[in-house]
């Protein structure tokens, strides 16, 4: 019989904590990427779908122009719709990729294994965001080029500040995705309905496809209570060079403050909510339930 020595040397070299998290993160990104590559039809279809949405919405907008499809919109209108659309794609993809991937792991029966491993839980969530950043970025650029070719010249001012607002808004959006993942663990199959509800709520109250001025007064108050609305408003107003009436919700200084706070606090809040929901699910034994 072999006795196990309490001081036996480990057969592998232990990585330092940051390196271990980074390594787990890289492995998870690779895994997500490999899964995506296994579905080339889905890959191409999701790209083509964005272009069709753009064409449909653009043609719908042109029905209100004096010369219909022959019209060339003003650059402010183009900027308003295109930049709003970019943020819409990011939010939509984040909700699905972060929140819904947790559900996918549940369905595939691999969520429990993930939790049994010592891998960082934050890396598990963030790995889903990494591909979204890359893929949605490409989609946004493509959609922006297509829309501007159909609607007219795209205004582009204050690039670095707009990039800062975009990053902060995306950070907040990812935090929203983490919070949604927490909700997914609790509500399970109803997450499908919830993600639709959130998406449509964003479409109405955060006004990505129209100016906030188009919202009736009570709805405008709801819009003002959502931090993401300030992200949409600040991002497109900055890129459009603050034309008359923009930003619509608050002075740009105030909007920048709100967006920064949203970008810093929301990921922390979202992750905290996720860990809380995860611990509850582990206690109840419902992690693999579906």
């Amino acid at each position: 019989m072999t006795a196990v020595s309490p001081h036996k040397k480990e057969p592998y070299e232990r990585m330092s904590e940051p390196m271990a998290t980074l390594s787990a993160f890289a492995a998870m990104v690779k895994k997500e990427f490999i899964i995506q590559l296994r579905y080339p039809v889905e890959f191409v279809a999701s790209f083509a779908q964005i272009f069709l949405i753009v064409v449909v919405l653009t043609l719908a907008g042109l029905m209100f122009a004096p010369d219909g499809v022959q019209s060339e919109s003003s650059s402010d209108v183009t900027g308003l719709v295109v930049y709003g659309f970019v943020l819409f794609i990011y939010l939509s993809d984040t909700l699905w990729s972060v929140g819904f991937n947790v559900r996918r792991e549940q369905k595939q029966g691999t969520l429990e294994q993930l939790y049994l491993s010592p891998a960082s839980k934050f890396a598990a969530l963030a790995s889903r965001v990494a591909l979204t950043l890359l893929w949605t970025g490409l989609l946004s650029i493509g959609a922006a080029v297509l829309m501007s070719s159909m609607l007219g010249e795209l205004p582009f001012h204050n690039g670095p500040l707009a990039l800062y607002i975009l990053l902060m808004t995306l950070s907040g959006t990812f935090g929203t995705g983490f919070a949604f993942a927490a909700l997914t663990l609790r509500i399970k199959e109803a997450a499908n309905t919830a993600v639709n509800l959130l998406q449509f709520g964003f479409m109405v109250f955060c006004a990505p496809f129209f100016p906030f001025a188009a919202l009736p007064e009570p709805m405008l108050w709801i819009a003002k209570a959502i931090p993401l609305s300030y992200g949409v408003d600040a991002f497109r107003s900055t890129l459009m060079g603050y034309p008359n009436g923009f930003p619509e919700l608050a002075p740009i200084g105030v909007e920048l403050g709100i967006v920064t706070l949203f970008g810093v606090a929301m990921p922390l809040l979202g992750f905290w909510l996720y860990r809380k929901a995860e611990n509850q699910a582990r206690r109840r034994g419902s992690l693999s339930e579906y």
């Binding site: 919405l57 719908a60 907008g61 029905m63 209100f64 122009a65 919109s73 209108v77 719709v81 449509f200 479409m203 109405v204 006004a207 496809f209 129209f210 100016p211 001025a213 188009a214 919202l215």
Partner: peptide, 13 residues
């Protein structure tokens, strides 16, 4: 909601 998008954009522009 879907129909409201072009409607609000059209009204605003």
């Amino acid at each position: 909601v879907f129909a409201a998008m072009p409607m609000l954009l059209g009204q605003a522009t």
